[in-house]
């Protein structure tokens, strides 16, 4: 029952999020429209910054959606459309940041951090490994130990 209530609460929310694209924006050609949706999902809304323009209700997002469709109808390729928007709003408008000198740290951080982690991991396991492979006691030493133990037991019994 509780779960049903949760679904009823969540489902209309999901539907409104998905329907920022208004009916009058949608292109007649389903193939072009699919490409437009695809491009829109990769472009950031500059007003509500963590949304893509495909799901944003902001005025500028709508304008950009219309612009994307206009460029597609005019015969631009997907890359052309993205380049057109990027020329006006900069790299910031792309939802996934491109690999440029400014973003080397961003893209490199996962590799550098896992590299450091690997160094630590190897260093620690090596130390543990060397502790385990310490040479066993020599025969003389074993005898010495036996002697100590024996004498110990003798003292206990006496």
């Amino acid at each position: 029952m509780k779960r049903l209530a949760l679904y009823l609460f969540l489902v209309p929310g999901a539907a409104t999020v998905a329907q920022a694209v208004e009916p009058d924006e949608i292109l007649a050609d389903p193939q072009l429209e699919a490409r437009a949706r695809d491009i829109s999902r990769g472009l950031r809304c500059v007003v509500c910054q963590n949304q893509d323009i495909d799901s944003s209700n902001a005025g500028v997002a709508r304008d950009l959606r219309l612009l994307v469709r206009e460029r597609l109808v005019a015969g631009d390729s997907d890359d052309d459309v993205i380049a057109y928007v990027r020329a006006r709003y900069g790299d910031y408008v792309l939802m996934s940041p491109p690999l440029t000198p400014a973003t080397f740290a961003l893209w490199g951080a996962p590799f550098i951090l896992s590299g450091i982690g690997m160094v630590f991991f190897i260093a620690l396991t090596r130390r543990q490994g060397s502790a385990q492979t310490r040479p066993l006691l020599s025969d003389d030493e074993e005898k010495q130990v036996d002697r100590f133990l024996d004498r110990g037991s003798e003292e206990d019994t006496s």
């Binding site: 500059v46 007003v47 005025g59 500028v60 304008d63 950009l64 612009l67 006006r88 709003y89 900069g90």
Partner: peptide, 13 residues
């Protein structure tokens, strides 16, 4: 009126 010049200028609002 269309906001197209606004896009050319890259405005966000």
């Amino acid at each position: 009126q269309t906001g197209r010049a606004g896009i050319e200028w890259g405005i966000s609002g």
